[in-house]
Amino acid sequence: MRKIIYKDFFVTFKSRFYYVVGVFVFGVALLSLYGIYHTLFENNITSNYAIFQMVNANNNGFFDYAAEIISGNFLSLFVAISVPVIICEAFGNGYIKNIYNFSEQKKYYIIGKLVSIFSVIAFYVFITLLATGISGIVMFKFKGIGNVKKYIVFVLLHILCNVAFGCVIMLISELFRKLSISMIIGVIYVVMLCDLLYQTINSVVLHLVNVKFDISDYTVMGNMTKLTMDSEKGDIIRTVLISVAFIAVFSVLTHILFLRRDVNCNEK
């Protein structure tokens, strides 16, 4: 197992792709921080917008801003772009053929991929911290470091949710084994399909059984977007349970699919 994890880790961090995406994460994070800065300080807005409440409540420490950046589904878009590369690249270039016959590769395939997904998400989180730090020098004057304890819980929950979402994309990528198709599906899902789908399900349930039901309480994306630094214990437990369930189910499905399907690579 150690060998598979190291091998996948090596492939992931040797690839330039994640560093390029990292630059985008950095840029988007800086832009978002500039948006907050511009809105708060230059226009002097003190409205009730949830996004600004935290900052206006004198919680404007370094980690409060860092948490603000990754809240919602900021990282999910980058996960939707990165996971198909982790899964499909070896199928696309045909490298999988060189190592597929190794029994360990088959046995621990999914572990290696999960570690890679986790590492990439952690790397992007680190970049948001970096962007926040730089924004502190250029734009904000942080009042201390903020609530570190809450930030750690918040960021771990976000990483967990994003790994769970990554597992959904992992299954899609394993199913298609085509980089472009998997990426497009992932991005569309994050950007618009997810909300549309939830609303449709909610209205169908309301129409059929006349019960007010919110499907987003039981999905990774739904829980992720609702997370805040001040989330209650019940919400945190629900988020953890749903994420773990998603990771387990989608990982098992992906692994079964990997073992059952023939390897026919689409080399360039």
Binding site: S15, Y95, N98, N101
Partner: peptide, 30 residues
């Protein structure tokens, strides 16, 4: 066993964006 097979099937399956050494290193880890 299957672990004792070395193979070149159809076209060479390689990471084009990596060096020759890195391509070897990936399998060397395994």
């Amino acid at each position: 066993s299957t672990n004792d097979i070395g193979l070149l099937i159809e076209n060479p399956g390689l990471y084009l964006n990596l060096s020759a050494y890195d391509n070897m290193k990936i399998k060397a880890i395994l």
